[in-house]
């Protein structure tokens, strides 16, 4: 109980501090904080189309973040998640471009291809870690660059638009490959997939032997091995699951939102998802609302540059500040708790 209150308390303190820091930043840039916050709200959920944009950005972020809950549980820093989103998008784009069939079949195959693309990329980093002794942070970062390089190569090379090679992206996919939408942008299938992913990961970590063993391997690989668990199997599984979910996020981004492959197809959602999971304290239950808050800032933040002439990177600064302060407040609480334990031991 006390722990739960402490957690809630630390989140509140961190959010309050982040709001203050952001307000100070805005004031320093000569903008009114109140007006800015209003613009962010308006620009993200103020109208139907805006809300659709926000929700469609929420989907890949939630998918990648759900995957990261699994890798963090296994004690892995899967920085390669960004590349896994990209590889999912590439695989889905390939299906969307090359596979001609009824719409339902194309979409299904493209989504599965996205999962497989991301899964293999995640597994690649996992194999490097388990068998090549390459730390997953470095392996993942390297694979991120490879994936990003590959998407640029495809867009201006083999998959370039007829006649012109442009970084604005490939030709739009055939309409059969587009996720069906309600209104202009909102693809209900994408939302359903994201919601299912969060529920599945929550359930996996809470209810299954797999989740329990994954936690054991993540918390103490040596003990887990002595107890009889095959640590490499669980590390690889975690990377595969995270890669698959991130890849699905990339696929949705490609066939559900952009409808073509663009160099910035990941939208940075892989890296952003790491921040979401840190802020969520590695728990699946908090991912949906926190991810929504983050995309509100990302999507609504563009209004700041349009209307107030502020730099568009301000949204990222706000998100980063928030995570940094949360981690800081959390660390400060741990420190205080240790001191309390020490005092009790002495007293």
């Amino acid at each position: 109980m006390r722990a739960a209150w402490n957690r809630a308390g630390s989140k509140t303190i961190a959010v309050a501090l982040a709001v203050l820091v952001t307000a100070a930043l805005l004031l320093a840039s000569g903008a009114s904080p109140i007006e800015s916050f209003r613009l962010i709200w308006q620009g993200s959920v103020g109208s139907g189309p805006k809300a659709a944009d926000t929700l469609m950005a929420w989907v890949p972020l939630v998918l990648a973040a759900s995957g990261l809950v699994v890798t963090f549980a296994a004690g892995l820093w899967n920085i390669g998640v960004e590349g896994q989103v990209v590889m999912g998008a590439i695989a889905a784009s390939w299906v969307a471009r090359e596979f001609h069939a009824p719409s339902a079949a194309v979409i299904t195959v493209a989504l599965i291809a996205g999962i497989i693309g991301g899964l293999l990329w995640g597994l690649f980093a996992g194999v490097l870690r388990v068998y090549g002794k390459v730390n997953e942070i470095f392996g993942g970062l390297g694979l991120d660059f490879v994936a990003t390089g590959l998407v640029v190569y495809l867009v201006i090379g083999p998959w370039k638009r007829a006649g012109i090679a442009s970084t604005s992206g490939t030709d739009p996919f055939p309409k059969e490959a587009w996720l069906p939408t309600v209104g202009d942008k909102l693809a209900p299938i994408a939302i359903v997939l994201a919601v299912l992913a969060v529920i599945a990961v929550y359930f996996l970590m809470r209810g299954t032997f797999f989740g329990l063993r994954l936690k054991a391997v993540g918390a103490n690989p040596a003990s887990a091995y002595i107890i009889g668990l095959s640590t490499s199997r669980y590390l690889l599984s975690a990377m595969a699951i995270c890669g698959g979910l991130a890849g699905l996020g990339g696929a949705v981004q490609a066939i559900g939102f952009q409808h073509k492959l663009v160099p910035a197809i990941s939208g940075g959602y892989g890296f952003l998802a790491i921040l979401v999971v840190l802020l969520a304290g590695f728990r699946a239950s908090l991912i949906a609302p926190i991810a929504f808050f983050f995309v509100m800032i990302s999507v609504g933040g563009t209004q700041l540059s349009l209307r107030l002439g502020l730099n568009s990177s301000l949204g990222g600064v706000v998100q980063g500040t928030l995570v940094l302060l949360t981690v800081l407040v959390g660390g400060w609480q741990v420190r205080r708790a240790r001191q309390r334990v020490r005092l009790e031991a002495e007293g």
């Binding site: 329990l212 936690k215 054991a216 918390a219 103490n220 040596a222 003990s223 002595i226 107890i227 009889g228």
Partner: peptide, 20 residues
């Protein structure tokens, strides 16, 4: 606690892990 038990996991969880 280094090569046997796992910090953060409960007694129930340990028994379940050991159950195979």
């Amino acid at each position: 606690l280094e090569e046997g038990l796992i910090r953060g996991l409960t007694i129930t969880e340990h028994f379940q892990l050991a159950s195979g």
